[in-house]
Design a protein around this nucleic acid. Structure first.
Length: 404
RNA sequence: GCGGUUGUGGUGUAACGGUAGCAUACCAGCUUGUGGCGCUGUUGGCGUGGGUUCAACUCCCACCUCCCGCU
């Protein structure tokens, strides 16, 4: 067992699989369910350290690939005292293993395929794409080209574990092969087996001070997901993550998740992390099914592209995906905060018209204020979710947020 | 006033005696283990008038306009 790491379920919802828990690490605790903000390159894009400490997230998630290839590199970060000192963040840090970059910088880059479904307007995979790929898949790992310079380096499970050890994060991910959507069952099975092999290697080479999460694969095939569940939960991982392609629709994703959870339930009481998922409705659906932590770039990316989260109090719903598009001309004359439920610093001092103008003139302040809002909004949402589970009213909260 | 010069979507530009292209902005969608790069689609134009020609944004004339020089 990894020292200084534990997970305790403090309250189990009576009607659903939703649960409240505490992940304890050497750098502090994380109350779950929780959506971990993303700081891929040891910073949350467009926020200063002061902004981050004002929001005070319980944890952040950084990325192995980017911190390895980006100057100064993980070795230098280790010399400087690790990622916590490097980015002046004292609370728990998750690091992703770099396996996902095989998809985001490789196949996903040239085809525009994503984790769920197909990219809008494209029903077929583009094959005439001249975008260059940065990825060569090998049996024992991935040959990556750097997106920052001309260097090319091999990364396998051992390398990923070494880098994550250098970074000194509390929670690390196994090195896996992230399969794209649209693969046949045979291809997915092959890819899953490679992931399993790499994950076993990850377990062998990991720093014993760090908590390693195993990642369940199997793409959109329920039988493969079950097989992966059995394999991953039989090993001594500290936590369970769900990765890879999750089908063509949200419905399919939830169905797959139901199958996964029912095959984990008896096996362990480990914390469960949903990789890369985190829209408002997904959080409710996945928490209900028993997920504990999430990470998702959407919160911050949406903010930068003009999407600001709103609650049901401001007519946030599944149709508008709980956000307004601040660039729209109708917001130019709205002298009120983004959201009346939100209590973030942006909502306290800026009206919709202010943000509309800052966004239109591309003022860098816009990205900062928008990011603060979206992260704070999600922080508050997750707290409400935790409170509702503790008070046995999770389903009421869910139906309030997901009402049509 | 005279001479020269300029005029193409909101903005910046390209080409051509035969369907006016590109960029950007606007508008409408999209964004789920972040390359900080976004992606898809729609709308919208030849300064005005006349002439030559089967056909003129293109050539010619006048006017208007822009800028430069001269008085």
């Amino acid at each position: 067992m990894t020292p200084n790491f534990s997970f305790e379920i403090t309250h189990q919802d009576k009607k659903t699989n939703a649960r409240v828990g505490i992940i304890k690490t050497r750098s502090g605790n994380i109350e779950t369910p929780y959506l971990v903000p993303i700081a891929t390159r040891a910073e949350i894009i467009s926020l200063s350290k002061e902004d981050i400490s004002a929001i005070s997230p319980q944890a952040i998630l950084a990325n192995t690939y980017h911190l390895h290839f980006l100057s100064p590199g993980d070795k230098e970060i280790k010399k400087l005292g690790g990622l916590h000192k490097f980015m002046n963040f004292s609370k728990p840090i998750f690091t992703d293993s770099g396996g996902f970059q095989a998809l985001s910088l490789g196949f996903g880059r040239t085809t525009r395929l994503r984790k769920i479904g197909f990219f809008p307007g494209k029903n077929e995979i583009k094959t005439d794409n001249k975008e260059k790929t940065f990825v060569t898949l090998k049996d024992d790992g991935i040959l990556f080209k750097s997106v920052y310079d001309e260097t090319e380096k091999f990364m396998g499970p051992k390398e990923s574990m070494q880098i994550q050890s250098n970074l000194g994060s509390e929670i690390i991910m196994a090195f896996d092969q992230c399969n794209p959507p649209g693969q046949t069952e045979e291809e997915t099975k092959k890819s899953m087996e490679i992931s399993h092999k790499w994950e076993l290697e990850s377990l062998k080479h990991k720093n014993p001070e760090q908590a390693l999460y195993g990642i369940i694969h199997g793409g959109a095939y329920p039988n493969l997901r079950v097989e992966s569940c059995k394999f991953i939960s039989s090993l001594s991982f500290e936590g369970i993550a769900i990765g890879g392609s999750l089908g063509k629709t949200k419905k399919e994703m939830y169905f797959l998740l139901d199958g996964i959870i029912s095959n984990l339930k008896e096996a362990d009481k480990k914390p469960r992390h949903m990789l890369g998922i985190g829209w408002v409705d997904d959080l409710f659906e996945c928490v209900e099914r028993g997920m504990d932590t999430f990470d998702c770039v959407h919160t911050t990316r949406l903010a930068r592209h003009g999407g600001l989260y709103i609650s049901p109090k401001e007519e946030g719903n599944q149709k508008n995906k709980y956000h307004i598009k601040i660039r729209k001309i109708k917001h130019a004359s709205e002298n009120k905060p983004i959201d009346s439920w939100c209590d973030c610093s942006t909502c306290k001092s800026y009206s919709r018209k202010d943000l509309h103008n800052l966004c239109r003139i591309k003022n860098p302040q816009y990205a900062k204020l928008a990011t603060i809002h979206n992260i704070s909004f999600m922080e508050k949402l997750m707290k409400e979710i935790r409170d509702s589970i503790k008070e046995n009213r999770f389903q009421e909260l869910k139906s309030y947020w997901l009402q049509k």
